[in-house]
Amino acid sequence: MKILCCVKRVPAPGAKINVTADGSQVDAAHLGFTTSPHEECAVEGAVQLREQHGGEVTVLTVGPTEASEQLRYAASVGADHGVLIPDDGSAWDPQRTAAAIGDAIETLEAQNGSAFDLILFGNESADTGGFQVGIRVAYRLRRPIVNGIKGIEVSGDGTGAGTVTARREIDGGFEVYELPRPCVLGVKEGLNLPRYPTMKGRLNSKKLEIQSLDIDAAAGGQRRVRLHRPAEQVSETVILGEGPEAAVAVVDVLEELGVL
């Protein structure tokens, strides 16, 4: 099975998110970087399918050259190939990102001489949360897509014509979709429990050859003006105690709230 996963490099903030003085971006000066949990699950899901059926997993990102770190991380947990579309350091809007990814996929499929059997996106990116890049790419490729997926099964060995059965969580249950291949899914954390890199995986990831594709696309209609933090709820924390004897005061609170 040939599977492509699209991942995005995002800062990993702790207790609060700080914004640069001009409001143009998240102040990442003292932050590490990661990919969204949704996308980590996409990579894990792809590697599991390859382990079952054979094939290859490619990871693709649009971002700064440093985003190769996220591609290498994916390789350390089992991805075979990495593709980087360097951006110009500005935040690309979702239409521009989707157009670049669509072009890249057409290029890669022409190189490979065949279509990816399955393309995985995250349900939404962790930072900007546009809820659309995967859907735009799928429409451009005229392939079906469903978002919000937490379960994937493929018919046969996952290659050629056949189906992909996808489960989506709803309140108290799930919906089932059946898509003809090749197809696209937007997945969510909970799809699986991503593995940690092994020593061997880490060594392999250092050797990953990253293919760089210079692709740009026209800006879309939405433009960021400024980022800012929502007004904070300030509350004076009442300390009820510093040991098990605080239990009495805690249960007084529960009683007062009527939840006992």
Binding site: P13, I17, T128, R224
Partner: peptide
Amino acid sequence: QWGGSLLEDSI
């Protein structure tokens, strides 16, 4: 953005 941790003004 960020699931509600941050706001973005856009045009």
